[in-house]
Design a protein around this nucleic acid. Sequence first.
DNA 1: TATGAATGAGTCTTCATTCAT
DNA 2: GATGAATGAAGACTCATTCAT
Lengths: 178, 178, 178, 178
Amino acid sequence: MTTRRDPEARRQAIVEAAAALITDAGVIDLTHRRVAERAGVPLGATTYYFASLDELSAAAIELLGGQMDAELEELTDLVIERGFSAAVLADVLHEYLSNHEQVSADSALYFAGATNPQLRAYSLRWFDGLVARLEGYVGAEKARALAVFVDGAFVHAMLHEEPLPRAELEAAIAGLLR
Amino acid sequence: MTTRRDPEARRQAIVEAAAALITDAGVIDLTHRRVAERAGVPLGATTYYFASLDELSAAAIELLGGQMDAELEELTDLVIERGFSAAVLADVLHEYLSNHEQVSADSALYFAGATNPQLRAYSLRWFDGLVARLEGYVGAEKARALAVFVDGAFVHAMLHEEPLPRAELEAAIAGLLR
Amino acid sequence: MTTRRDPEARRQAIVEAAAALITDAGVIDLTHRRVAERAGVPLGATTYYFASLDELSAAAIELLGGQMDAELEELTDLVIERGFSAAVLADVLHEYLSNHEQVSADSALYFAGATNPQLRAYSLRWFDGLVARLEGYVGAEKARALAVFVDGAFVHAMLHEEPLPRAELEAAIAGLLR
Amino acid sequence: MTTRRDPEARRQAIVEAAAALITDAGVIDLTHRRVAERAGVPLGATTYYFASLDELSAAAIELLGGQMDAELEELTDLVIERGFSAAVLADVLHEYLSNHEQVSADSALYFAGATNPQLRAYSLRWFDGLVARLEGYVGAEKARALAVFVDGAFVHAMLHEEPLPRAELEAAIAGLLR
DNA sequence: TATGAATGAGTCTTCATTCAT
DNA sequence: GATGAATGAAGACTCATTCAT
């Protein structure tokens, strides 16, 4: 899986394996052995590159955090590209929420923040980033209301394994924007 | 902590300790040892009263589920009592979300459902119950939109450790109801 | 299963349940709980009637030993009744060995004696009893040889789950008697 | 007992300790702790080298099975070397049965097969191997009769802690061969 | 007399971590 | 630099036995 003599790649492979386990299981229940197996590296490598399991876990979370940021970036870029409106917001949100696998992966980190104070920063980063991106268009108050609704829709999609209908999303967003 | 020879009380104490750990840790990461220590009973008691940790865990979740139902009941009763309106909804919601301890306890179970399929039923029960109670007043579609927003506000309060301002809640709710 | 207020019957039921477990499992791996469940008595009864599990186990073995004696008695009576001869011996032995369930039950105790010195007396009792019953007809030496062969045939039937053919048994017995 | 950093030797030591416990106790009632103590290794070593107790047990049984095969091989070679006859068979059998320690070790596995279906294959292998080796000399039927008698003599020696007299063995064998 | 509550010892197993090689 | 051997702590679970009732 990883070439010998490429420590950085190996380290990366380990972190990615850990991140994959976190999003898969939806829980942060890592063990050195599971990470090693998933990454296709020997057990010793996981302890060689990371002083402790916590450190490895932190690196994996950092990776997921970056992915979440990128995700948000991408979505807001889409909105800007298509022109800001309730309809476009609903479209983009619905598209995103329809990708259950993606929602599931993102939620692992997001919900972990709900219970694990260490991870709260990541969840807040998402919320704050969303508000920051929205407030240029609608002001701080409506931006917060929208972000809250989006989070609710996110939770809803996660739990129901499918999003609210696009039309309902648009109606609600329109209501919040008025 | 518990009187000797009062099996029902002892069983109850164990379940309550487990539930407390779940809401405290926000995670369902129970161990017999932790439950025993929390309940102030010997280790053996936890295995004597529950055939497996899963069974103990299930009993604790059931307890929390009942509490969550009661919570919802109480809140909707309050709304009805005061008269259904955006202002009243915002009041009741804000009061509830201001009680961080309560929010924290409820969220443990709610968010657990996001990652643990076994617990999803509890999360859905809350959402569906809320929708059912709202739709008599506003129709199914608006009920769903409101419930989604309430969930978002719930997540928000959990993460920020304080709710959105009452006024913002009311404005958003009013928008969704229009 | 057992009437209240009949201590002797209850004691008996417990011993019988233990004996049944021993012959079923083929191993002496008793627990109070299993015996209690099998006997349909409360857990406490098993410790009330027997000071320890060893004592209960001993009582069960004693019961099985008695059954083994009765078995041997019955078989030799059959031989005497039909007239002592290689053919009759082969008939009776073959009939007995064909009853796999019976063989299986008897073997539990017999083989246990092979490895557990405490139980050796029971196994020896069977062998010695058989020799004693045979030697009036054929003398001590042939009686021993026959008993050895019978034990071999017993082991064989146990392992193969069916006896040697009747004809082979008769031929062998005839050879040993000559 | 074992050098550090010699995994193969350590693994071997653990298996041998397990096999010794099986033959000693005559029962397959292994525990990690007992094996570890017997082998002079820490508890963790027994679980490190074998994924489960069953796996460890299987390895020990395999070892004993091989020893049993070798035993049979050796005995039949002796018979062939000295020339096949009732006298030689009796000699070799008597010599073997006189070695109580050896008989005891072999019987552990053999009798275990009587009660544990998983181990039956080993017991049958012995019997079938013996028959196969004899039938070239005396035909299948007499080979089976002899093997049955040998098994009986084996059980007898095990239980009485000494074999039948050599002369009686020869007389019986001669009878079966006629 | 009879029983179920009670508990600590012991079982298998997993695993983070250390360290010899 | 890298890795697999090594180990003890901790986890879930079972149970003989004790004992209050």
